[in-house]
């Protein structure tokens, strides 16, 4: 992992803990939660246990605790703020806050990149914007259809920004939206007022937006992680917001096309990219993380192709290739089997 942006010793982070509520020692702990798997789990269990203890002995403080469970935003680059998602599966305990979401401030206005899983997360994002600037939110961008990324959009409707997405996002939202809203209920997330917000501006291939002296280049990719992945490149800092085209430390999920994704990875990083914000995991140079992700996807493709050639069916391929993903991938057991199935369904058509 390259730069470790989240740490209580980080002056930026410390500054934010003082400037931006919630202010408590809990947030320091939560803030570190994007680090390794072990520590994440331990800290989170610890936090949950303490929250449970506190809420059981002093029920009147539960509202305050709910606010404290919001993960903090931090400025990771000049005018770029992010809330790192937890490297965990979505649960009621973590409010489904597993994806990196944030915003970019220009001289005139603010562009939001992804809004999280619920209206409540969108509201927290809006509050974080308001805490650091009075500039209006002019754009709300969805990096793709998944519910951990764009289901907080509803909280921005009153601000009437331009909602932006890949040209295939409307179809994907129409097909999956109701199911994801149901999923939010099933997971017992705080889904009040959470709704599907369709983009008003679609990116066919590439587009440019300007938030005032700061141009953001949007690119719509061929099917890769999903069939509606959109990236945001900040021309001021050279930061590429890759969405889920890049997973750092956490096992990447194939929900579009494994062949497409491997190809996209070769083009994701033109020379002017200095840093990459992944959809999950820490900010970094991107190069090493892309190589790691590509190595996994290529080995997955090779393994599944061989399984198909050997006459294995889908279920047999899942069993045969179970050990193919290295043990270091976080949430490996949640993603790897599924990836084998998705890859199989695609590659049997080659």
């Amino acid at each position: 992992m390259a730069t470790g942006p989240v740490s209580c010793n980080d002056p930026l982070m410390a500054a934010h803990l003082h400037r931006w509520p919630p202010i408590s020692s809990f947030d320091g702990m939560i803030g570190q939660a994007v680090r390794g798997g072990e520590s994440t789990r331990r800290q989170f269990v610890c936090r949950s246990a303490m929250l449970a203890l506190l809420s059981s002995c002093c029920p009147s403080s539960s509202a305050a605790l709910a606010r404290q469970s919001d993960l903090p935003f931090q400025e990771i680059e000049d005018g770029i703020h992010v809330r790192y998602g937890l490297q965990e599966a979505m649960t009621a305990d973590n409010h489904g806050a597993i994806a990196n979401i944030g915003f970019i401030i220009g001289d005139e206005s603010v562009a939001v990149v992804d809004t999280g899983t619920t209206y409540a997360q969108g509201e927290s994002l809006m509050a974080a914007v308001r805490h650091v600037t009075d500039k209006p939110v002019s754009h709300v961008i969805a990096t793709h259809v998944h519910l951990d990324h764009c289901f907080g959009h509803g909280a921005f409707e009153d601000a009437a920004p331009v909602f932006i997405g890949h040209h295939r996002l409307p179809g994907a939202l129409s097909e999956r939206g109701d199911f994801y809203l149901e999923q939010i209920k099933t997971l017992s997330l705080d889904g009040a007022e959470t709704r599907v917000v369709q983009p008003g501006f679609l990116v066919d291939d590439a587009a440019e937006i300007d938030v005032g002296g700061r141009k953001l280049l949007l690119k719509a990719w061929p099917a890769a992680h999903t069939d509606n992945d959109l990236t945001v490149f900040d021309t001021r800092t050279g930061l590429l917001w890759a969405g889920d085209l890049l997973f750092v430390d956490r096992i990447p999920i194939v929900d579009g096309s494994i062949n497409g994704w491997i190809d996209v990875l070769d083009e994701l990083m033109p020379g002017d990219v200095s840093q990459v914000m992944p959809g999950h995991g820490a900010l970094g140079s991107g190069r090493e993380a892309i190589e790691q992700q590509k190595a996994y996807l290529v080995s997955l493709r090779d393994g599944v192709r061989a399984a198909i050639a050997d006459g294995l069916d889908m279920t047999e391929a899942v069993a045969e290739l179970a050990d193919l993903a290295g043990p270091n991938w976080l949430l490996r057991d949640e993603g790897h089997g599924r990836n084998i199935i998705a890859a199989y369904a695609e590659l049997e058509w080659e």
Binding site: G171, E175, Q183, E334
Partner: peptide, 20 residues
Amino acid sequence: KASGGCAAPATKNNAQAMAR
């Protein structure tokens, strides 16, 4: 048991399925 997370009983690559 249903899968969790972002898995949905939906199409993955509708355009490709339509193209062929």
